[in-house]
């Protein structure tokens, strides 16, 4: 697995079962984000494969990825942003209003998404995961910019997702208060 011409990790074999989560830890530059991108299929692995068992590829992508960037654009309201993702990925989860309520953005629904603070944008990203149900969540530093309430919210959402048999891989430096998480420690940059 690697990025550009830099090999970041070799001989990595991991297996995550439904209903459980994996925490990726490691110093900066150890390849957490690259591993997430590779697992999400956004980067091709240098060698080897990523397989998702029990999922028919014809049903569309099975995963939600959320990276460092929030994909939140100014000049569109919060509600419209969420509706957009729901339309694109299928209305298979919570309704947009319920999802916004759940992440604590209910009052901002009609505001321009560009006015949201970094933490609020992060909450909007979490709402995106709720409006379309997908079994796999790949989250890159989901707790960045979130306040204490936000981290509790994140932990609750993750617990609920795992309890439904979902799967999550999370790259983070913070502690996330969720049971059923195993930790993969990535080494320092080679």
């Amino acid at each position: 697995m690697g990025r550009g011409e830099t090999i970041l990790a070799r001989g990595l074999a991991l297996d995550v079962a439904g209903g459980s989560g994996l925490l990726l830890r490691g110093p900066n530059g150890s390849g957490k984000s690259t591993l997430l991108l590779t697992l999400a299929g956004l980067l091709a692995p240098v060698e080897g494969t990523v397989t998702i068992e029990g999922h028919d590829p014809d049903d569309g992508p099975a995963l939600h990825y959320c990276g460092h960037r929030n994909a939140v654009r100014a000049r569109i309201t919060v509600r419209q942003t969420l509706d957009f993702w729901a339309a694109l990925n299928g209305h298979t989860g919570l309704g947009a209003d319920a999802a916004l309520e759940r992440v604590g953005l209910g009052k901002t629904a009609k505001l321009d998404a560009g006015y949201l603070s970094a933490g609020q944008q992060r909450r909007l990203v979490l709402a995106r995961l709720l409006v379309s149900r997908r079994p796999l969540w790949f989250l890159d530093e989901p707790s960045a910019a979130l306040d204490a309430d936000g981290r509790v919210l994140l932990a609750e959402l993750l617990s609920a997702h795992l309890a439904e048999g979902g799967l999550a891989v999370i790259a983070t430096h913070d502690d996330i208060a969720v049971s059923a998480l195993t930790t993969l420690q990535l080494g320092a940059a080679p």
Partner: peptide, 14 residues
């Protein structure tokens, strides 16, 4: 590309 939407388009149902 800059705000990350393009990566999400690649994972969209569409």
């Amino acid at each position: 590309l800059e705000d990350g939407t393009l990566a999400l388009y690649r994972l969209a149902d569409l």
